[in-house]
Amino acid sequence: MNIFRLTGDLSHLAAIIILLLKIWKSRSCAGISGKSQILFALVFTTRYLDLFTSFISLYNTCMKLIYIGCAYATVYLIYAKFRATYDGNHDSFRVEFLVVPVGGLSVLINHDFSPLEILWTFSIYLESVAILPQLFMISKTGEAETITTHYLFCLGLYRALYLFNWIWRFYFEGFFDMIAIVAGVVQTVLYCDFFYLYVTKVLKGKKLSLPA
């Protein structure tokens, strides 16, 4: 555990909590892509199956349970409790265009051709693109609430910090995982455009709105 890894995890946790609180406090999920949230729930479910097979640390187990629990709670709020506020018409990204290629790729390129390993690989690949329905929704409506942009920033920051964590681990521990690194780079790159808008607009007190 290094400082990048810890702050990355905390940033990830902050993102998840921000989104849950935003929906809960405003009693609305307007502007939030339910499809992205379903994909994240799928990511955590397929990655953390090792909860049943191996114990790493209390920290590790607790965080996994919190991530999974929050992911399903978010999906529940969007599709059940506050369904009336869900903006399905604007959440029109075709997720099969992500899930099918990612599924194929995880079968083709993995560390070991075993069920748990393929599911872990699937979750890594899927996580890297799971935010696309949300970004698509924002580009379609042309704007995002400020709290939603804080959520996206924390979520992007998390993977960027993990990149530094992997650099650290490579130099000091000799560890590296090519699948995680390549997917992590892809994931971080997808946020770059958003990071630019966040810094130039939101941090200067303006609402994030895209030119028509």
């Binding site: 990830h12 965080m63 560390h111 993990y162 681990r169 590296f176 995680a180």
Partner: peptide, 10 residues
């Protein structure tokens, strides 16, 4: 060690 960092990462 290649490809074994994930066991302790989230």
């Amino acid at each position: 060690v290649i490809g074994r960092t994930r066991k302790d990462e989230l």
